[in-house]
Amino acid sequence: MNKEYNPFSLEGKTILVTGASSGIGKSIAIECSKMKAKLCVIGRDIVRLNETLSELEGEGHRALQFDINENEKIKSFISELPELNGVVHAAGIIKRLPLKFISKEDFNEILDTNLVSASQVTRELHKQKKLKTGSSIVFISSIASDFASIGNIMYMASKGAVNSFSKGIAFEFAKSNIRSNVIQPGMVVTNLTKVINDKEIEEDIKRYPLGRYGTTQEIAYAAIYLLSDASAWVTGSKIVVDGGITLR
């Protein structure tokens, strides 16, 4: 055997990652580059996005500034992209409000970013035949789809919808041999979790059976599996990566 055994290699694959300017999406891009993928990284903040680009291993990566909620620009944006073997939808936002303070605008903002825009990006990629046969689509959902926490109604609903959406397209795209799966992370400290105060975090960590929060890399490893050919027979599934918190 002259080539090293690695069923999780992403060599020869081009992968698009949204939300790559921060947190989990950033880590996914970096870890995928270490697995030899070529990356197209997307985010709104060009400074942080370029930081991600500079941390990628290997050559031939691209950083593209784009707000996925700019629906009218999605078509032309997607047309600029190369053919892909994988997409990771990691762009996402959170807003914690009790129901009596939730307006339609608040709800739409969360649903647009976490669900509808990801659906439109996927739709355009498919329409423009950017997803090669054998492609893998990964959604970064959350354990919040099934487990309640105070004030988290809009986020929970958006992630539940993402889970169902992924199953829907897994079924619809199966005949094109395109897979779709979901990762449900537990708590990982990123910019997103700044909505939770330090004291709450201190208390919450104690509830984790494995005794700590996760790291962004630990979510990225699940994404690598789902993007690699090791998961060629896995579609419509949900992988929980949560330090055991949902055992409770």
Binding site: R96, P98, F101, I150, I196
Partner: peptide
């Protein structure tokens, strides 16, 4: 829930955004 409600009330009634 009460804490989040007060934070939301400050935003809605006084346009004040205060972090946790």
């Amino acid at each position: 829930l009460a804490a989040l409600s007060i934070i939301a009330m400050l935003d809605e009634e006084y346009d004040i955004i205060i972090d946790g």
